[in-house]
Design a protein around this nucleic acid. Sequence first.
DNA 1: CGTGATAGGACTTATTGAGTGTTAGCGCCA
DNA 2: TGGCGCTAACACTCAATAAGTCCTATCACG
Lengths: 152, 152
Amino acid sequence: MRISAKADYAVRAMVELAASASEKPVKAERLATAQDIPLNFLENILGELRHAGLVRSHRGAEGGFRLAKDAAEISVADVIRAVEGPLASVRGAPPEESQYNGASEALLRVWIAVRANLRHVVEEVTVADVASGKLPKSIDKLADDPDMWVTR
Amino acid sequence: MRISAKADYAVRAMVELAASASEKPVKAERLATAQDIPLNFLENILGELRHAGLVRSHRGAEGGFRLAKDAAEISVADVIRAVEGPLASVRGAPPEESQYNGASEALLRVWIAVRANLRHVVEEVTVADVASGKLPKSIDKLADDPDMWVTR
DNA sequence: CGTGATAGGACTTATTGAGTGTTAGCGCCA
DNA sequence: TGGCGCTAACACTCAATAAGTCCTATCACG
């Protein structure tokens, strides 16, 4: 039920990369200062993103990172999965692996529904959407409800 | 993005309490065996639920726990908040407290949308719903999509 | 008054988030 | 062509939190 710092940083770094979209690689340090992320921690994250095939890296003086594919092809969910593993796990494992006895049998369906709603958001929004500031209509609609801006 | 063991256990304990709905209090040990929860950890959780005013406890030979109010008046969100604090935080703080620079400005709206969709599920489902196995239609609809049952 | 139950800490242990330091590869330039 | 400054890559530490255990006081009822 919480979005980790790692996931937040990873998405922000990807968005920044998308915004600096040229053929020249972007240095990790520039990403760090632009998005206010601890540099060393960011390098860790970039390593995982590279491992997942979301970014390409280049060493040397003119080195840095660039997106491995078009920003519009990368969803927020892809980024989160790359650094955090599966979305919406229960006790660290996929919901369907848990055993629910008797009275709480229906709880599994609740967790599945939570996951479904979560996916609807993060799978639909792409890195390019965030970078351009233009979110899909259905997402904007959710975020426009003033009730959702209060902490409860 | 994960449901903690504590939250899962707490909801299951509440559901079990709702299902054993008589005037007699239910002993912690019975809840533990029925829902397969470590007894000592469960006692911790029940303490927090009591503190939040969701359950009433009774000591002594005929003691145990019972719901403090009607099961239909208690949402899953209430239970989770009692043991975990606010739903859907970003880096441990409410999303609206984070600062998003430049390119990632729209990201805040994404996290708000995530929170909104999360709330729609857990605020709507009550402990009574789960105990009876009859979830609200909108939730059932989400859980019926076979796509949502695969881990991705 | 004694049995059986909750109350509620204090105390391990494991996991993971967060951050640091070191190593090794690349490209330029002398 | 050989070294030097730049970069990513990787291994590692530290801290916080989650998960689970254990112990002792306290209370209620028969």
